[in-house]
Design a protein around this nucleic acid. Structure first.
Lengths: 200, 200
DNA sequence: CGCTTTATGTAGTGTCTGCTACATGTGGTG
DNA sequence: CACCACATGTAGCAGACACTACATAAAGCG
């Protein structure tokens, strides 16, 4: 109680455990990964699991946060405010498709697909994280393309979800990226005809 | 054994049971609906359930086929060969969005979302049914827009999946249909500039 | 070295899963 | 009306689920 922080003994590497869980959750989804799967993959027993992470949902959140930091799209770079949206949005869509289809076993967006979990708690966590990314896109569009920002943001959200779902269902990397390029061309055509330079 | 077909006694309406199962599977997904949920909703006991339908997966297939007949998009009408694809494809996308977002509890495409089931048998059935629809679109494009038919078909597939997933995640009817209209405008612009009359 | 703290393994909790053996009762058929 | 096939209800199957009580062993601190 005297503010003396005891160093935690690293009996097993908790961060490594999160990485293992991240991979399992990403490739199979929250509901399809059982406690037994997790503890076996980490080579620990259930009590250690609960001592370390609390419960399955809490570990899922840590895994998603890890995913968001390491694997999620670098929206800050992609949506650079000095580049024209007719350039950045197609780049965003293509980058998403590339990431979703690159790894043959870790397909789609872990967060987007996490929103489809049966468990309400897990779904809520995923929705919260996904909302952050979508709001970043929305804020970017509000700045660079204020007229019809909502519609364009929704179109992009739908396309991203479609790319993620298609990746999970096995669409090949080539067809996935080609579909993203098609969507990108469409968006570019729309934004170019509308306003060649930044608005207002 | 003597080819004497005994009339089956309709102790409970089996087709009505399929309809109930269809609704449950559509709103919650295959894995999230348990035998107990189904038997309770149909007001029957498990033995009656298995006598009538075989097992959960078989009932899921019957429910999906029922959905395909009653609720799925009328591709034959939408993809009328005498209308220009710049007209039919946007109409298809909009019709999908309207259907996916119309009912506040039966959201998205039951078959598209069925492909995300954890159970491999259920997933395979959904994939088989979904493939039928996609091949119809592909065949249509091969006829009316042979150059880049694959890319356009993939773009449409991605967009449809995105619309279904977004509907399931609660995107409002208005925003959903607006996103579909946006995609439709993009497609129309592409197909119009390419070839005003049917190709070849 | 001894004490305290903490994570660990053993073993098990209750609940839910899809599914079924068996006896009963109902309904169509001869 | 009597029979018999069939579907039904009662009750329960084995297995998987997320999760935990308890005693033990290991690591940090004085």
């Amino acid at each position: 109680m005297n503010a003396k922080i005891r160093q935690r003994r690293p009996a097993f590497d908790r961060e490594a455990g999160v990485a293992i869980a991240q991979a399992l959750f990403h490739q199979r989804g929250y509901d399809a990964v059982s406690l037994a799967d997790l503890t076996e993959a980490m080579d620990i027993k259930p009590p250690s699991f609960y001592a370390a992470y609390g419960n399955k949902a809490a570990l899922f959140e840590r895994a998603m946060r890890r995913y968001a930091q390491e694997n999620a799209l670098p929206l800050d770079e992609l949506l650079a405010p000095d580049r024209h949206p007719a350039e950045t949005i197609p780049a965003l869509l293509l980058a998403a498709a590339e990431q979703y289809g690159r790894n043959s076993v870790l397909r789609g967006c872990m967060i987007t697909e996490g929103m489809r979990a049966d468990d309400p708690a897990a779904r809520l966590m995923a929705e919260k994280l996904a909302d952050g990314g979508l709001q970043a896109i929305r804020a970017y569009l509000d700045r660079v393309h204020p007229q019809g920002a909502q519609a364009m943001a929704d179109y992009i959200a739908v396309t991203l979800r479609g790319l993620s779902a298609s990746a999970c269902n096995g669409m090949s990397y080539e067809r996935l990226t080609e579909a993203a390029r098609t969507a990108g061309r469409f968006v570019a055509r729309e934004l170019e005809t509308d306003d060649p330079t930044t608005a207002s």
